[in-house]
Each structure stands twice: as C-alpha cells, then as structure tokens.
C-alpha cells in the first residue's frame, strides 16, 4: 500500500516510516502541510497519516484538500494530541476515517493500517 506520512516532528516521522516500511508498505514522508498537499496530487496515495498541527497547512486543511480534489478512495488517519477531541470531531466531519491519539504505540498504528491494507486489496481484487 502507498502511504503518505505528514508529520513535522522528524523523529516521529522516521518512527512511523520505519514501522510501516517494515510492514512492507511504500512510504512517502513530508514535514509540512503544503508539501503534503502537493505530494498527494503527485503520488495519489492509498492512505494518508497526518498530524493535526503542522506548519503552512494543518491536518484539517489536508483532509479538506483531499476531499475537494475528489480523493474519495484515499483513506485518512489523523494523529492528534490528548485533549483535541473537538479537532478530531471536525476531522471526521471533513472526511477522516480514523484517528490515533498521542502518545501511541507504533504497533497500534501498524494494526490500524493493516485494516485499511486488507480493504485496499479487496477493492483491487
């Protein structure tokens, strides 16, 4: 599965990338919202994992851009901090599919991604 990871904290970005690559996914990373929006158009990923708070464009703006550009089949997982329930609700309203609250375990993320990976395979078949 082709996954785009939008996360401005380098260590977190590398952690997620490492874990997902280990699971056999193709991972593309970016460090800010504007770059993420550009890359989504270029590579058309199956899944986007995005942080909410990012420079230039927030995670919510990324979701909006994806849905506006007709990316209905692109799944979106939002990474949020504790106490951001309102933002998570807004993300769901905009079209996010799932969310993970920080602190999180890379294993948990891997399992959630796996669920979408199975769905993507079924659609392809």
């Amino acid at each position: 599965m082709k996954i785009l990871v939008a996360e401005d904290e380098m260590i977190m970005q590398k952690t997620i990338e490492f874990r997902l690559k280990k699971d056999g996914h193709e991972v593309i990373t970016c460090s800010d919202g504007r770059e993420a929006i550009q890359k989504i158009e270029e590579i058309n990923p199956d899944l986007i994992i995005t942080d909410i708070m990012m420079p230039f464009a927030s995670g919510l703006e990324i979701i909006e851009a994806v849905k506006r550009n007709g990316g209905k089949n692109i799944r979106i997982i939002v990474l949020s901090a504790m106490g951001q329930e309102n933002v998570v609700l807004e993300a769901f309203q905009l079209g996010a599919d799932d969310y993970i609250t920080k602190p999180f375990s890379p294993n948990e993320l891997s399992m959630r991604v796996k669920r979408y990976s199975v769905e993507t395979k079924e659609v392809t078949i």
């Binding site: 904290e9 260590i11 977190m12 920080k102 602190p103 999180f104 375990s105 890379p106 294993n107």
Partner: peptide, 11 residues
C-alpha cells in the same frame, strides 16, 4: 519530548 508521543516498546 519523544517519550510524550510514544508508548510501548519504543517508550
């Protein structure tokens, strides 16, 4: 800073 964002084996 990193520990605040992770749990499980990495933490």
């Amino acid at each position: 800073h990193v520990k605040k964002n992770l749990f499980g084996a990495p933490a």
